[in-house]
Design a protein around this nucleic acid. Structure first.
Lengths: 234, 234
DNA sequence: TGTACATCAGTGAACGCGCGTTCACTGATGTAC
DNA sequence: TGTACATCAGTGAACGCGCGTTCACTGATGTAC
């Protein structure tokens, strides 16, 4: 079943990879809103109309960048968890660190995924949802494993869910075949947004200038607090 | 000391207010990166060069929008806390709800403040920092009052701070004249970013389509969890 | 192996559009005597 | 109150620039016989 790729196909793949690389560079230097096919073509040393041999439109290129970024982030998280120890808290912290490290290394692509939506662009759900849910699926997996192993202490406070939220969470339990109780899944969603809030504040500079000399220390503390919110047993 | 404003001054103020209003509209419809002085001029029914009588450059207009947005958000929070009951947890939840409500009502302006930084634009610290810190100052005020009133239970877990973070927090204690212990201030910073993470996920659509039928219920739950992180006594 | 044809990457011109900013100007409004 | 002058909002042309997308084309590479 090994496809033999002709020289022409190989050249096409190389050019396509170059287009993506140059688009990522543009994203970093000028932002998603200013991503321009003409500029990509110029960087590639090609006439502007030629990029249409590779990409149908500017929006399609944006979608490719979104999917690629979600995939790279997902890969980074998967790699971090690959040889992870079994303790749930440790696994959660490894996941969180991987997200933060990727975001700091790739601020523009992180911003494309988790910042202000690009005006006038709507990611086609069919192509982006699967890649976009990899991190939260991993997070839920960690929670699920801990729950099934009996490593989660039910929190004494706030375990009850309002009816609408209970229904939403029930739908997630079915869709992802989860065994964890609703209150835990709901807390997982809250921890998910809190994790990305911490990363976004740091990457987008929201803490303000000169507030934190080493943001990683606050991040570590916050992640431990979030892990405690999930009731992970040491 | 009442300044008498001449008709000309009044007209100038009205025009300036119109420019801001139209700029806000453009922000909402096309995003910060696409904010254009020419388009503002056209909407105002004026020749493009005329806006330079009111605003020195596109960047200055962006700065005005940033400062105005921070101010409006700060006002919304202040209003919510004005007649607030004294219990710290309740005050925290009121603050959080005010942030969320403002963000949902003004997603474009929220994105300008808390989303991807506008490429090529750097807000001048002198003009934006004071307005930009109003919410966190309020949050710290709530924490401070609770601490001073003895309404905070020291958390049994994770109270120790790493050295760098301890120094950062000490600087904040001095600058804002805080009495609360370092671990509490650090947790306050974590709660701050978590709050905005929850709001950003909702406003930017990060929970994904069809995940939550009523995001406010998850928000309420998450805020109660965050309040518990601060050790507020019921 | 050689030839005829098909595929396809890249060209170059054009479409209609928008941008920030400068500059000399007009003409109405405001001010000082 | 009337006049001369200063202030200032708004004009219109221009600068040099960039954008996405279409279209007929050239010429090299690949394929079928």
């Amino acid at each position: 079943m090994q496809e033999i790729r002709s020289p022409r196909e190989l050249a096409r793949e190389r050019t396509m990879a170059e287009i993506m690389r140059l688009a990522r560079e543009q994203l970093a230097s000028h932002g998603a809103a200013a991503l321009s096919l003409r500029a990509v073509a110029k960087d590639l040393g090609i006439v502007s109309s030629a990029v249409y041999r590779y990409v149908a439109s500017r929006d399609e290129l944006l979608t490719l960048l979104v999917v690629e970024a979600y995939s790279d982030l997902g890969d980074a998280v998967d790699t971090a968890l690959k040889r992870a120890p079994l303790a749930a808290e440790k696994r959660f912290v490894l996941l969180a660190r991987a997200v933060r490290a990727w975001a700091i290394a790739e601020p523009a692509r992180y911003g494309l995924l988790f910042g202000t939506p690009v005006p006038g662009y709507h990611a086609p759900a069919g192509q982006t949802v699967e890649a976009g849910t990899r991190v939260v699926v991993r997070l839920m997996g960690i929670i699920e494993d801990a729950w099934n192993a009996g490593d989660i202490t039910a929190s004494p406070t706030v375990p009850s869910l309002s009816p609408g939220l209970a229904a939403d969470v029930e739908a997630l339990r079915t869709e992802y075949d989860l065994n964890s109780p609703g209150w835990l899944i709901a807390r997982g969603l809250g921890v998910w947004s809190a994790l990305f809030g911490a990363v976004s504040f740091e990457v987008f500079g929201q803490y303000g200038p000169n507030t934190l000399s080493d943001a990683s220390e606050l991040f570590e503390l916050s992640m431990r607090v979030l892990a405690a919110n999930l009731g992970f047993r040491g």
